[in-house]
Design a protein around this nucleic acid. Structure first.
Length: 255
DNA sequence: ATGGTGGATGGTCCA
């Protein structure tokens, strides 16, 4: 069983890359973020040709998430059950082969202290509430997506220079840690403690070539699923292509 | 020095 997450930064622009990647990697499920298109324009037929069913929750120009699956999806939900946060198309979930998959696009937050930063913290609180009310940590739950947070200093290319900035600030990390403490393990960190492993590199200043990145895309799992976790890796290949997404896919394999 | 890139948009906003 292979489950992946990938912020594609526009499914319209990245469609051919996404299709080629699915053909190569053959995941059972891929969770997409920043699809940036309305549901009426989601290119579901291209995925259907490969045997994948698409479930999407999008909007014009910004945000947008999708669940693409080879296997049947049950209990599909879009957005949170409660409305404690202004709506944005940032969350979709469904159960595949007994695994409750939560696909989220956590707000970027722009800069520490900004209005968008406060929105990010509130959104994290809403996510925690949603998980508490709709999931059980004793079951197989997988939380993945673009978290826009580097959990530890080893997930940042230059933590000293970047200390306390957006994606690394103490309040963001604490909010995320509270979600983790509900019952998740970072599937990637089960398999390696290496630093310098990143999933996002700024388009500017040759950041990818110089490996000036951040590990902000994650796959987290509850204990019963962590036991099944045989490997998790970041696939840097799509980031090397012409006109890439700024994010690389993260892939988790389960026995 | 305030850039540098990219996507959606149709002016700027967002990342």
């Amino acid at each position: 069983m292979i489950i992946a997450t990938w912020n594609v930064n526009s499914i319209t622009v990245r469609l051919d890359q996404a299709i080629a990647w699915l053909q190569n990697v053959q995941p059972d499920v891929v969770c997409l973020q920043e699809t940036k298109t309305i549901d009426e324009k989601f290119p579901e037929s291209r995925f259907a040709e490969l045997g994948y069913q698409s479930y999407f929750y999008g909007e014009k120009a910004y945000n947008g998430v999708a669940l693409i699956s080879k296997l049947p999806v049950e209990n599909l939900t879009r957005g949170f059950f409660h409305d404690s946060i202004p709506d944005a198309k940032r969350f979709i979930s469904g159960t595949v082969s007994g695994i409750q998959i939560l696909n989220c696009y956590i707000p970027n937050g722009q800069a520490v202290g900004s209005d968008k930063y406060l929105y990010k913290l509130n959104w994290l609180k809403a996510l925690k509430t949603h998980i508490e009310s709709s999931c059980k940590s004793t079951e197989q739950v997988l939380l993945c997506g673009d978290f826009n947070i580097a959990p530890e200093d080893i997930d940042v290319y230059d933590a000293a220079a970047y200390g306390g900035e957006i994606m690394c600030s103490a309040a963001e990390r604490q909010s995320l840690e509270e979600i983790r403490a509900w019952g998740f393990t970072d599937a990637f960190r089960k398999h390696t403690q290496e630093s310098g492993k990143f999933s996002w590199w700024d388009y500017r200043a040759g950041a990818f070539r110089r490996n000036l990145g951040f590990r902000i895309d994650h796959i987290w799992v509850t204990p019963s699923l962590a036991e099944r976790s045989t490997n998790t890796w970041i696939d840097k290949e799509p980031r090397k292509l012409e006109r890439p997404s700024d994010h690389a896919p993260v892939v988790a394999e389960f026995a």
